[in-house]
Simulated assay, not measured.
Amino acid sequence: MKFSVARNVSPSTLYIVPTPIGNLEDITYRALSVLQSVDLIAAESVKHTGLLLQHFCIKASLFTLNIHNEVSGSLVLLSKLQLGYSIALVSRAGTPVISDPGYRLVYCCVQKKIRVIPLPGACAAVTALSASGLLSDRFCYDGFLPSKRILRLERLRFLSEESRTLIFYESTHRLIDSLEDILNIFGSDRHVVLARELTKFWESIYGAPVKKLLNWLQRDIIRCRGEIVLVVEGYKCNKYKKLTPNILYTLELLISKLPVKIAISLMTKIYNVRRNDLYDYVVSKTNRL
């Protein structure tokens, strides 16, 4: 047990240490120094982190902290910090706590006034945003969309008028379903950038209106595989100022079941919007198709 004798770490301190999201050369000198020096490394995956440490010839004591033991594990680690241990928190890849375990431990440390030192480093969301070509001065990271469709649609409707660029993580097997829901809620023209396998050998970054993006993916299902980040253009007011995404969604639902004239008549009564704006929108959409 070292009890933080190295000068580059302090006792009773939690270090949040980002690790590479693919390319191992992306790790920082400071991250390596901390991992080499701390008394204990709290890892989401001991096996995955063990391979990383082995690559850099670092010998360290590891403790598993994942979604299955986050509550009990955080209490164990907290007690060790109070005894004087220095601990590094790492996830499988990227910056810990961002859609990964570790929040409870950090929260406990803050509550108990134990020092928390965050290191800068790899983060898939920011990496994808920087190369997306979409506005990056204001953005909203929203993690993984819900796996259940009813909840996913609810989340997307809530975000449908968000003007900031949106960032989501998505899994391979839900990608097509999520993009189809984005198309239905946000409209076919909303620009979406798919960043896949960032920093890895098969890295690809492709952006297009969501309908075109779906067609591109469906032509080659391999394009759906790997670690995926979706960067979505924020909502922009269109020339039909009062026709919000929620209004347009309802309009399209009604048109799919009723004659256009009746659907528009109902919409004017439900939302108090101009009949001519609704007709113009329907005509413009028909022309685009």
Rank of each mutant, 00 (worst) to 15 (best):
S45R: 10
F144A: 06
P101G: 08
S72V: 11
S99R: 04
Y29L: 14
L135Y: 04
G50H: 01
P18Y: 08
L145Y: 02
S132F: 06
S37W: 02
V126T: 15
A43T: 02
C57G: 07
T28M: 07
A31Q: 02
V110L: 11
L52D: 00
I27Q: 09
P101W: 08
L51C: 11
S91E: 03
C57Q: 14
S74G: 13
L35T: 01
S136H: 10
R138W: 12
S99D: 08
L78Q: 12
S61I: 10
F144Y: 15
G143N: 07
I117K: 11
L62N: 00
G133L: 03
R30L: 10
K112G: 02
I98A: 12
A124G: 05
I98V: 14
L134C: 13
A122E: 02
A122M: 05
S86T: 05
C108Y: 10
P96W: 09
E44A: 02
K80S: 10
L78D: 13
T95A: 07
L32Y: 06
I87C: 04
A60T: 03
G22T: 01
S130W: 08
S79T: 13
I21V: 13
L51Q: 11
R30C: 08
N69W: 07
V116L: 06
D100N: 14
V126C: 12
C108F: 14
L40N: 01
E70Q: 08
G73A: 10
L65F: 09
G73Q: 08
L83V: 11
R92T: 14
S45E: 14
K59N: 12
F139G: 03
I58G: 00
